[in-house]
Design a protein around this nucleic acid. Structure first.
Lengths: 334, 334
DNA sequence: ATGAAAGCGCTAACAA
DNA sequence: TTGTTAGCGCTTTCAT
């Protein structure tokens, strides 16, 4: 059974392929109702599906968008994907979701691939700073793109960002209000912009309250649960802190594990605050207090911007505001 | 800046487009080294990227694969995606990941879309039984496809499945060995095949041990955490069970929440066993005992099968074996 | 209201 | 070893 093409439809309906194309694209002003319905009937009958590739080749629009995320296993990103996908579909685009697995090489590879696939635009949630190669890839081509969250938060290019500094500040403020003074911070990788910002905001809050944050209380993680677990196992027994700020929820989970193993009670002996508000943390006991970002909405907005860009509508970057969600893992110190 | 095409390369290098095409496709037997290098230099210089769409149009191979998952927010599926993606990339395919959000309509839509996009094959992890429309879509077209996990586990079509019955059996067996006799089971949606199978295996284990499983102890969930939470809140205070089998880990999380709120100690007062072994559950306290499936590997294998199918290599469906992972949430009854 | 024909960027016979 | 040419399935002028 051969693939049925526009030609087959035309022959079957006894019209030209132009006519078929017209009804396919709903350019039917001044077209006899009969012809249209005849064509539609044939299309229906043989379950014809137009070849989007051929279409794209002439229109130069593939109706495909690319989304590169650094780590699909972090539940933060599926949320992002959902938002992005829904918005893309709304405008009749499909989304190619690519997972770079925190590897620059994969990221560059996908960037190339998406271009070759002629996507109309790319939403890039980079693993960190864009690599040189990626930057060139992006700049040289005329493929519209939007930077999401990580990567360079510059005015050079529109993007969707979170006010990470504020998020860190909120976290610090919250712990201070609860009376904590011995506080540690478990950061993400040092080369990741948003991780730096979260720490900076956190430090600002402590400074304003004249609370010292010794170097040794700044722990460098990598946004992963396992590493956080390992670091906490090492840190907690040897240091007296009453609170800890994990720069993402996944790492907070790792700290929970460690605390449990060591026999430290949360929040009685240790307050923990996370960052992201991923869906699963409501299952943690006690429930994790965290800095929430509206991930779904950010994904949605990013695609909205991207499509604007593609259609040459004016649009500019957005910075989202994080909010504090108080649950059970933080507690007033006695 | 116009897109640079094969013509531009040909002109610049002073050769024909065929020659350029040849070096692009590495069909260079009997081709002068100089010519090739000359072409390569030009390609390099202008950072030329071939148009995969145009390519696909003539070769009838898009080098794209589609993957439809029912719920990207369930961490089970990102794992699946990772395995699928890695295997696809290995053979130089890209993956379009689509999230049907448990809606048949979206699923059908994506099926149509992927076809229009001329993907070479589809990996379908259906929301449940395939809808009539989907079935027709799939059967009518010649696009190769593989069924994953859910959907119809039939010999009609190759697919990758888990022995869900055995998984349920293992769960039952484990609880029985710990001395439990008052056991409840929180299932997935009744129309989902794997959910039914898990329950069936569970029932078989109980039956073999002559333990009764009253109707009222079979709770119908929907694989979501929130619903499980609600159901458990209602069930636990009004029934005396010492153990509960949740047909996936997400629901086990919901039960944790409920137990915590009600003041039931896990595992002292209630043993819980889950299903899937999603990465995050090691952060639960106590750690969740569960039935593990090797999700990443299953995703990998599914794509391997799909590619075999595409390339007309013989291959047949695979059934994976689940394993019991004992952690801390199940305990011998006193 | 409809059709003929050109061409999107590329590959693949077939020629030379 | 290289080039000429005919499409792939479709949209889009330009005619009629």
């Amino acid at each position: 059974m051969e693939k049925v093409t526009i030609k087959d439809i035309a022959r079957e309906a006894g019209v030209s392929i132009t006519t078929v194309s017209r009804v396919l694209n709903k350019k039917e002003e001044g077209m006899s109702k009969e012809t249209r319905e005849k064509v539609l009937r044939v299309i229906e009958k043989v379950n014809y599906q137009p070849n989007q590739l051929a279409r794209s080749l002439v229109t130069k629009r593939s109706k495909m968008l690319g989304l590169i995320v650094p780590n699909i296993s972090n539940p933060f990103f599926p949320e992002l994907c959902r938002g992005a996908e829904d918005e893309a579909n709304k405008s009749n685009y499909s989304l190619i979701i690519c997972n770079s697995d925190d590897q620059s090489e994969k990221e560059e590879n996908y960037l190339r691939l998406l271009k070759e696939q002629q996507v109309d635009g790319i939403l890039l949630s980079s693993k960190d700073q864009l690599s040189q190669t990626s930057k060139i890839q992006l700049q040289e081509s005329k493929t519209p793109f939007i930077i999401f969250d990580r990567g360079e938060e510059s005015n050079q290019h529109p993007g969707v960002f979170l006010d990470n500094e504020k998020g860190g500040y909120l976290a610090g403020q919250h712990l201070i209000q609860l009376g904590h003074t011995q506080i540690a911070c478990l950061t993400g990788p040092t080369n990741i912009n948003n991780s730096q910002k979260r720490l900076a905001g956190f430090q600002r809050a402590l400074k304003e309250a004249s609370i010292e944050l010794p170097e040794s209380f700044i722990l460098t993680g990598d946004f992963q649960m396992d590493t956080a677990h390992r670091i906490a196992r090492e840190f907690l027994p040897n240091n007296t802190v009453t609170a800890i700020f994990a720069c993402n929820d996944l790492m907070a989970c790792g700290i929970y594990q460690a605390a449990h193993e060591i026999g430290i009670q949360i929040p009685e002996q240790l307050s923990i605050i996370g960052f992201d508000d991923i869906p699963l943390i409501t299952a943690l006991i006690p429930k994790l207090t965290t800095i929430r970002q509206n991930t779904y909405e950010m994904g949605r907005k990013a695609i909205e911007l991207l499509i604007n860009e593609i259609e040459h509508k004016p649009s500019e970057g957005v910075i989202f505001e994080p909010t504090l969600v108080v649950r059970e893992s933080t507690k007033k110190i006695n």
